[in-house]
Design a protein around this nucleic acid. Structure first.
Lengths: 245, 245
DNA sequence: CTCACTTCCCGTACGATGTACGAGAATAGC
DNA sequence: GCTATTCTCGTACATCGTACGGGAAGTGAG
């Protein structure tokens, strides 16, 4: 790792050159592969083996290419990650026009996002540090802005609302997926979600501090299914958006 | 990097052994340093040079210790990151007892969290992939649960609410800080927040697709200060929590 | 068809990183 | 002092992202 952005945030590649089509030069040896092909390979690896398994070597090997060949299509790994994010954002299946019921539309967007994040469990982890503005991401944003038109909110507020919504989805899915991973990691007891965590918490609670936590753990909990929890929280987020409208 | 968790999520160290005091053995050479000292060193580096600069070598060097010495205090780097998270969670300055006005208390918690994340800008990036349950984190959770008692929500719902709130704060601060970093990275124009981003967006918008986005960018925008934006979104989140209460 | 030119391919190499290993140093109790 | 125990950290290795540049593979002009 020669250099990594010390702030761990920006791509370092300006958006224009990244997302504009980048006209193929008309002379010389034609490229054997495409940026899309490389992105797809990276996504496939992330889907099956996790984000940490996405190394330039692995992505190249999967295509039967030399590692360094990737760098004629992508300036660096960070950019590849942005491409991956935009790629899977293309999985959104949204109507051409919003329905007019903005709450319904927002719920639909959120559900699409949840579905995508379940299909690509690495997404919630990849998102928060990156500011991706590829065409597919923009398409979703465009749709959301259109859906929010009936709220009467101004443009600034609509943008904020969308950010709020996707922030919620990403952060909740991060949690939901971590929970599931913990379950299958400990192997046993898919029923009792917490397990080692719970044991520890109970031991902590036994110390006598944390009385409210104690009571929370003592309650039945009902062992909700993840979809129900998501829906309930989603409703709260949407509830808060425009109390008047 | 010998092995990294392929899912990029769990610590691999069970919580009990991590957070319990771990009685000093009574024989043998006494440790020259402490876990707290190492954590503090790591936090100091992250604060001044970014999360990426937190390497085992750097943390050790800052203490004048050999790199491998750290491993008698901390099983691996991932654990060190969890310790860092809990450490800065100790910065929370919360009253002993909630006020009884839960909206006020929640707002206060969120503002504390925002302040902490501005003091430690690496925090929002470090949080989402980690499930930290150290004593300081638990103390905040305990306080939040207490604050939420007047809502009448059940335990499950109160936990969810807290998760929702912190998820919002982390995700928004991630955005807010990224925006600021972008400003100072491009150096010039601290006034116009977007700059390169805006140029690109305008070029995209000029393509004719994205009409709603176009209108959003065309609007004055008012160039809000970050605190105001945060407060407005926070109010929406809190609004959605318990419409009845 | 030839050839010069353009472009892509990718082997090699380097600096960094997390951490396994184990020899040595330092201390506490007897 | 002796011994058991614990901490210290130099060395070493696998792995990562990627700079560099020689050679291969095409293209368009003549």
């Amino acid at each position: 790792m020669a250099r990594t952005d010390s702030s761990g945030t920006q791509a370092g590649v300006d958006p224009e050159s990244l997302w504009s089509a980048a006209e193929r030069p008309r002379r010389g040896r034609p490229p054997a592969r495409s940026r899309a092909e490389i992105t797809a390979s990276a996504v496939a690896i992330a889907d099956t083996e996790g984000l940490a398994a996405v190394t330039m070597r692995a992505v190249a090997a999967r295509l039967g290419a030399g590692t360094m060949s990737l760098y004629s299509y992508v300036p660096n790994k960070e950019t590849l990650l942005e491409l991956m994010i935009d790629e899977v954002s293309g999985d959104h299946q949204l109507p051409n026009e919003p329905s007019g019921d903005w709450r319904h539309d927002l719920r639909q967007i959120a559900h699409e996002q949840r579905a995508i994040m379940r299909r690509h469990p690495w997404l919630p982890a990849a998102l928060p540090t990156r500011q991706t503005l590829g065409p597919n991401v923009l398409a979703v944003l465009e749709y959301a802005l259109a859906a929010l038109a009936p709220t009467g909110l101004d443009a600034q507020a609509r943008l904020e609302t969308f950010t709020l919504l996707t922030g919620f989805v990403a952060s909740h899915m991060s949690y939901e997926l971590a929970q599931e991973r913990a379950v299958e990691a400990t192997g046993r007891t898919p029923g009792e979600l917490l397990d080692a965590q719970a044991r520890y918490l109970h031991s902590v609670v036994a110390s006598g501090n944390y009385p409210h936590l104690a009571r929370a753990l003592a309650e039945p909990s009902g062992n909700q299914n993840p979809k129900a929890v998501f829906d309930r929280l989603l409703d709260r987020v949407i509830n808060g958006i425009a109390p008047g409208a």
